[in-house]
Design a protein around this nucleic acid. Sequence first.
DNA 1: ACAGTTTATAAGGTATACCTTATAATCCAC
DNA 2: GTGGATTATAAGGTATACCTTATAAACTGT
Lengths: 216, 216
Amino acid sequence: MRQERVEEYLGAVYRLRSDADTPLPLAQLAEYFGFSPVSVHEMVQKLEEGGWVQYHPYRGVTLTEAGTDAALALLRRHRLWERFLSDVLSLPWDEAHTVAGDLEHAAPEAVTERLSAFLGEPEACPHGGPIAPQATSALEQCLRSLGVGAEARVTRIAPEAPDLLRRIAQLSLMPGSLVKIVAQTAEATGVALLAEGGRQAVVPAADARAVWMEIV
Amino acid sequence: MRQERVEEYLGAVYRLRSDADTPLPLAQLAEYFGFSPVSVHEMVQKLEEGGWVQYHPYRGVTLTEAGTDAALALLRRHRLWERFLSDVLSLPWDEAHTVAGDLEHAAPEAVTERLSAFLGEPEACPHGGPIAPQATSALEQCLRSLGVGAEARVTRIAPEAPDLLRRIAQLSLMPGSLVKIVAQTAEATGVALLAEGGRQAVVPAADARAVWMEIV
DNA sequence: ACAGTTTATAAGGTATACCTTATAATCCAC
DNA sequence: GTGGATTATAAGGTATACCTTATAAACTGT
């Protein structure tokens, strides 16, 4: 297995899983990568042989300790590069994410740490992902799950899919934004928001699941 | 052909060739990469089909215009990352070169240009390679070719092989260093130098071929 | 001009990581 | 508990870019 491929898979598992103990169905990995389920299955078997994941037939994969460590290290590199690209080179949000996806494999530990120091040891990437990731804060709730009338502040966008980031960015829903839920669309297909400055927007339900918030 | 592989080959041809019109023997490419001559031959054929190089049987390869452009773009990215790693993250010389070798494939045009702007549009990489490379200055001479008694200033180190950079760095022969040739070793196996501050060093003939200087 | 070296090319092999097709096993809902 | 969907696994295929071995062609020095 090439290191880069291993990292991509581990990173995806980490991003897509709901929690450490619930196995992530392979179908979700296949959809995320746009690969066939058979290919993902093959790769997951190799990852299990390598000790990175544990495979629970008919249920999915969980990360081993080694796998979690590798995923966290990758995510750290990813987010630091995102900060660099976004803060220092002023790249747009979603582009920073894409480019960081290439850079994250190319920087050894020592470079990562120096980059972190240069950036002033930031604690979150431009869309709010923690740079030394811990458990999701208990205060964090998904936009999708908030009721009408709730007021909340965006803390992060996760998972970090480029298309999603682009759409979210267009709605100006970056971490820190304060919004109020003003309505639910019929059949729960979306959430209508009133943002700071009086801007209004309707977030599709699928996207609303990726916006994490802290109630204020 | 994967883009990365194409770039590696074009970059190598550009670095190793003596001038634009003299074909670079495949044996030199094979040695540079540590690949078998057969593999290099195969790859060169594909590069020719792709319009990147022209292959002159029994003589070597030259870059087409497209190939030269691609090589220059790669070299520019490489050298800008080197500057970043060296100046901003304070990585040692040779390590910066190695890491830049990974980063150079991962940054699209837009990122490169912003990086250049951030770095203040530098004109040379840490070991003196021009960032918007032009023809080698007519004033530049190879250390190997200088006679005893000559005084010269290092302008650049080329080609940029990691081992070579490490050895040259140990001799403190960075661009800008002023040296005087004090002797030629027996059978021309090396060149003895007197550097600024009175340091003395013997540079093996093979390495001396990679140190470019301007007579003062 | 011929011997010896270098270079070219043919033929077949390896590993990685994808693919499709097809069958088998398991799960879940009614 | 059975049928339909999901998931697993087997079998065989593709492309890339490397490898070795072996033969053939072309160059080069004496």
